[in-house]
């Protein structure tokens, strides 16, 4: 084997490994990203479905179902806001009283808050190091 071939072999072995280190090597961020992408795709589908229905009428039961799903996802990431559970509870109370319009408004807000908290989780997973002080 010539010297040039040896060099090629070494480079061939090392470059992919080095490149993999240069990529985002934060497993947590990747995991959250992957889950978030799935959730976003799901969320888009749900929103699409909701928009189609909104033009006529958003069904309260569907909205409650979407909120419950969003809540599960947000809790999985541990970034739930303290304000959101209270909203959900209030939404159920209004729904049980038959105040469908008010309940829908509240559930929409709760759903938005869950979605924002998931966005926050995604941002935190990728950027939490920004707050770590650096040595001069």
């Amino acid at each position: 084997m010539t010297k040039i071939n040896k060099l090629r072999l070494v480079l061939l072995l090392t470059v992919p490994v080095v490149l993999s280190a240069c990529s985002d090597n934060d497993d947590a961020a990747k995991a959250v990203n992957s889950t978030m992408e799935q959730e976003q795709a799901h969320s888009k589908a749900v929103n699409q479905e909701a928009k189609q229905t909104t033009s006529k009428e958003v069904h309260l039961q569907d909205l409650m179902h979407h909120v419950a799903q969003a809540k599960r996802h947000a809790e999985m990431h541990g970034f739930v806001w303290s304000t959101t559970d209270a909203l959900v509870e209030k939404g159920y109370t209004e729904a049980s009283k038959g105040n469908e319009k008010v309940a829908k408004t509240i559930f929409q807000e709760a759903k938005l808050q869950f979605e924002l908290s998931m966005e926050q989780a995604k941002y935190a997973a990728q950027h939490w190091q920004l707050l770590v002080p650096e040595d001069d």
Binding site: S82, T83, Q120, A124, W128, L130, L131, V132
Partner: peptide, 22 residues
Amino acid sequence: GKEFFYSRRGQLNMACATCHMA
């Protein structure tokens, strides 16, 4: 634990480090 300390969370978007470091 370190990631938790430096991660922004909550509706006010603050980390432990926001108050107790920065």
